[in-house]
Design a protein around this nucleic acid. Structure first.
Length: 959
RNA sequence: GCCCAGGUGGCGGAAUUGGUAGACGCGCUGGACUUAAAAUCCAGUGGCCAUUAGGCCGUGCCGGUUCGAGCCCGGCCCCGGGUACCA
């Protein structure tokens, strides 16, 4: 080698052709024995592609398994190392299940409609389809390099007419359905019409926007238009005038899960409440089933908790309060019926329809002014001013149905129109919001609950309300002396008995606003006749997205589709101008993967009854309140109509954690061009500046590279410590603006994708957030080379022994079979990687090159590092892909130990170890321990009080 | 505020049912090979005390249960996520 190297230099200077022939030969000689990941990975990716290794078909002979990744939105920025984390995990599980005899469906596609592509189109004029296509191509290239076992023949794109055909089809089905509360499922709207024709709304239990009351003859007397408008009150997809989240920066309405803290999730623009006519999906009809379904699926505790909170079930009562000198009542919802005797005023939401009727002439001006004020405030301001108390007296009084007392009716925006009935009975003594309101406006406060053992006090002297969840009732007539929970029950009974209201379960979950005033989404298969919406016939689908000249609203303020030519039916009726939101296309994509080529149905009965549901779903927790609610709703709807066979779509769900970026900083001394190393920065006033992580190695700044990176740094001066510039660092979101993005392509270029895959898994538990630090990657890269050397003794040619494996070798590999199988089953991939390292270290120590042993090891490793596994598998003489190999079976006999090295503790502290036969009886173990030299020292002449022997585990001597 | 998850060496993390705390890897230190470097290999690496032998302390903090607690119970602190006038 030394000769070659010096010859190198020599040849380079004199004879180019000679130089090249030498270097080529050198490479061949070296690479024959070295781990050449580039060649290997390319080779096997091509092999899988040409042999269609991962294409699957329904096969009733084999059990199915469906592994799904949440499909990505293909953004322009491409993938960073955080994106593939979940994909790698699901890929490992896919390959593992396959090797255990399952027919595994593992598809991938793109959530391709969405705002960013459209925003980009507005800026550049390019059609979003073009940029989306380009982004998808880039994504695909990046994904392909990682060597996933996807069946790409099943790819779906939500923006493809062949795909959104079925999104539109489902919408039509929803439009033509209502929710029957008696049967607890969706049914055809014709059944509802039937019911109206026979008995009007009598005995009707249907989910609706507003309770209605009419007779059969009323119904028959209505015009076609009146009937159609009335049916919207019951349809599962319906058009209604409601309060919506309007985002003027995006020019569209947003669903509740698309708004966070008064700002749009995409872009962070302000959002305000507005009354608008919009399409909605009656998700709320399914509240109960969405909640109950959570008990039947294996999701993480935290995720089911988020969904439970979002659905927000609360048990209580709707109670009626008569209004003084009027013949109507105000209905309130309360979970604390027991505190009724403390209800000393009522509050209406400013949007409540009752406000107008209940305002007295004297109060009219004040009320109008207040309503105007609250309208002006955006959602954001309302949230920011939660503590600011505001409200106005309506001038009217209600009668407390239990105390018969007159109580004033107020109007305030701390009561929400959208929850319960939009009106409350205020119990200031026991509700902090009511308390603050009463204090502010000087309203009456009555204590009705005392803490057990406490006595009543004057609420006027209180600083805070007593929000009592338990306690004893006082000042409450027939409830006095009861506990809170007993009193709640008793009051509910009393309310029903006296006909003052009814027991009611309320849900926080709202119907989903389903239209967007945007271009890049699915058009609604809806047209308008005389202002009434009708859905198109199914044979007209797909209704393709038309071209427009600009991706902006029209001058009239209509959505972009208002610019399309001839956007009307053949009969000339105008077509809906909104498009569907992002969650429309992602709500049933898992079904489409089962049968993506089907032109006649979303999914065929056969395909659906074989693949059934997703067995393992991996994706981010950010979809907890959006996609994961909508798709469960969507699926339940299709289930009700008999199109799918499973009520819940995702049996097991895992959230992969975020991979955080590790940003680097330099510290500039204020108003200078001098940078001070981290350890000595305290002596100066400094500003931390983000710098590109490629300029830093082990927190040491590459000063030359830093100077060259930006003209601004050209003349920079440095204050060093130990002749080095040490950078600061912080964990932040991986993003361009933090200069901390790590691209998987670069990692693959340097180390190969098997190393990338292993390292992503090795970083830590799948579900945890963890920082990316490329430095640690050497460890797994070294591991793969060490594995390679097991097959290539002394850096020589490939050499393998076919002899019978030794017991020691068998023990090592079976220990690994057990560990890795267990780990994969519980998604503990980081510990599997460490088990592989231990295995290879031990086999290296045993100088093992045994074929049987190494074959098993390769199969175990192949889900994690498939390329190197295939290469070595082939080298061992195998002709089939390792993806089709049988997962090795565990033989526990090899793991049995004859000798146990017992740790011996004294009072719980480990003092020494003693080697004893595994089957030694307890009494003999005690004797053996007592006889031990070191034991005598710790006993110090005393007799032990007790000796605890846990067979095969530990011995503890109590003194 | 409420709900959920978490806090272990310089760093990422391990400890699956209450049973040897710190597996595995990074980093660091020393050594072998080499003219040298890279690669590779060997040894060490929680803190403190001690020449050694060895000892003491140690899983956010305080207390408890237990022969034995990183793990269970009670209280508190901190970080992350969800939600936010939900009656």
């Amino acid at each position: 080698m030394e000769f070659l190297n010096s010859f190198h230099t020599f040849a380079k200077n004199f004879d180019p052709p000679l130089y090249f022939s030498i270097i080529q030969r050198e490479e061949i000689e070296q690479k024959a024995m070295e781990y050449n990941f580039k060649k290997i990975e390319q080779k096997w990716q091509e092999y899988w592609k040409t042999n269609k290794t991962f294409q699957v078909q329904a096969d009733s002979e084999r059990p199915k398994f469906y592994v799904l990744d949440m499909f990505p939105y293909p953004s322009g920025a491409g993938l960073h190392v955080g994106h593939p984390l979940g994909y790698i995990a699901s890929d490992i599980f896919t390959r593992y299940k396959r090797q255990n005899g399952f027919n595994v469906l593992h598809p991938m596609g793109y959530d391709a409609f969405g705002l960013p592509a459209e925003q980009y189109a507005i800026q550049t004029g390019q059609h979003p389809a073009v940029t989306t296509d380009r982004n998808i191509k880039r994504y695909r290239e990046q994904l392909d390099k990682i060597g996933f076992a996807y069946d790409w023949s099943r790819e779906v794109r939500t923006c493809d007419p062949g795909y959104y055909h079925w999104t539109q089809w489902t919408f039509i089905k929803m439009f033509n359905s209502f929710y029957n509360k008696k049967t607890r499922k969706a049914e055809g709207i014709d059944l509802l019409v039937n019911h109206f024709e026979i008995s009007g709304t009598q005995n009707l239990e249907a989910a609706c926007t507003e309770e209605m009351d009419f007779s059969a003859s009323d119904w028959k007397g209505y015009s076609e238009k009146e009937q159609q408008l009335l049916l919207l009150n019951y349809r599962l997809a319906y058009l209604a005038e409601t309060m919506v989240n309007w985002c003027s920066a995006l020019g569209t309405v947003l669903a509740n899960d698309e708004v966070k803290e008064g700002l749009s999730v995409r872009g962070g623009y302000p959002v305000e409440q507005r009354q608008m006519k919009q399409w909605l999906l009656r998700v709320s009809a399914y509240s109960e089933r969405l909640l109950d379904g959570l008990n039947t699926i294996e999701w993480t505790e935290s995720l089911t908790e988020i969904q439970k909170n979002w659905i927000g079930r609360s048990e209580g009562a709707n109670m009626l309060f008569p209004v003084k000198d009027h013949d109507f009542t105000i209905e309130v919802f309360t979970t604390r019926a027991d505190t009724i005797f403390g209800a000393s005023f009522m509050v209406l939401a400013p949007e409540s329809e009752l406000v107008d009727t209940l305002t007295t002439p004297e109060q009219r001006n004040a009320v109008d002014e207040y309503i105007e004020q609250t309208k002006k405030r955006t959602e954001r301001e309302r949230l920011a001013e939660v503590k600011r108390i505001s409200g106005v007296f309506s001038g009217n009084y209600a009668i407390n149905p239990f105390t018969r007392e007159e109580i004033p009716i107020w109007i305030s925006d701390y009561v929400l129109a959208g929850y319960g009935t939009g009106a409350i009975m205020a119990v200031p003594a026991h509700d902090s919001r009511d308390f603050a309101f009463a204090k502010h406006f000087g309203l009456k406060i009555v204590q009705v609950v005392v803490q057990p053992g406490d006595s009543e006090s004057d609420p006027a002297g209180w600083d805070d309300s007593f929000d009592a969840k338990e306690g004893i009732m006082v000042n409450s007539d027939f409830l006095n002396g009861l506990s809170v929970s007993d009193a709640i029950e008793k009051t509910k009974q009393e309310v029903e008995k006296r006909d003052l209201g009814q027991i009611k379960v309320n849900y926080r979950l709202r119907d989903a606003i389903f239209s967007r005033q945007r271009y890049w989404g699915e058009p609604f298969p809806v047209y308008f006749k005389d202002g009434v919406p009708y859905v198109m016939d199914e044979d007209q689908l797909p209704l393709e997205l038309p071209d427009v000249d600009k991706y902006l609203p029209t001058e009239k303020g209509e959505p972009p589709l208002g610019r399309a030519n001839n956007w009307s039916t053949r009969d000339g009726y105008p077509i809906e101008l909104s498009t569907m939101p992002g969650f429309a296309g992602s709500s049933a994509y898992y079904l489409r993967y089962m049968d993506p080529w089907n032109k006649k149905a979303l999914v065929s009965k056969e395909a659906n009854s074989y693949w059934r549901d997703v067995d393992l779903y991996i994706g981010g927790t950010e979809h907890a309140t959006g996609h994961l609610i909508y798709s469960r709703f969507w699926n339940k709807f299709l289930y009700d109509l008999g199109y799918v066979c499973k009520d819940e779509p995702f049996r097991k769900l895992i959230n992969q954690g975020m991979i955080q970026g590790r940003s680097s900083f330099v510290y500039r001394i204020k108003d200078t061009n001098t940078y001070v190393s981290k350890g000595i920065k305290k002596q100066h006033k400094t500003t931390a500046i983000h710098i590109d992580i490629n300029l830093v190695n082990n927190d040491i700044l590459d000063i030359d590279a830093f100077k060259k990176s930006n003209p601004e740094y050209n003349n920079a001066e440095f204050l060093l410590e130990d002749d080095k510039y040490i950078c600061g660092w912080a964990l932040e979101k991986m993003s361009k603006s933090m200069f901390n993005v790590v691209n998987p392509d670069d990692i693959i270029e340097t180390y190969g994708t098997d190393t990338l895959r292993l390292y992503e898994m090795f970083l830590g538990p799948l579900e945890q957030s963890k920082p990316w630090d490329t430095h640690g990657i050497d460890g797994v890269f070294k591991f793969l080379r060490k594995l390679w050397r097991l097959f290539h003794q002394n850096n020589e040619e490939f050499s393998i022994s076919s002899a019978d494996p030794t017991l020691a070798e068998l023990k090592v590999v079976h220990k690994t079979i057990k560990k890795v199988s267990d780990d994969i089953e519980r998604f503990s991939f980081n510990t599997s990687v460490s088990a592989f390292m231990i295995c290879v270290n031990e086999l290296t120590d045993l100088k093992c090159n045994n074929k049987t042993i190494l074959e098993s090891l390769l199969v175990l490793l192949s889900p994690f590092a498939p390329h190197i596994a295939e290469e070595l598998w082939q080298a061992l003489g195998q002709t089939e892909s390792i993806a089709d190999a049988q997962w090795p079976s565990l033989n526990e006999d090899y793991l049995k130990e004859d000798q146990i090295e017992y740790p011996v503790s004294f009072n719980g502290k480990m003092r020494f170890k003693i080697e004893l036969p595994a089957d030694m009886p307890k009494e003999d173990i005690e004797k053996a321990v007592m006889a031990h030299e070191t034991a005598k020292k710790w006993l110090d002449g005393k007799a032990p009080k007790k000796i605890i022997v846990v067979p095969k585990r530990i011995i503890n001597v109590v003194i």
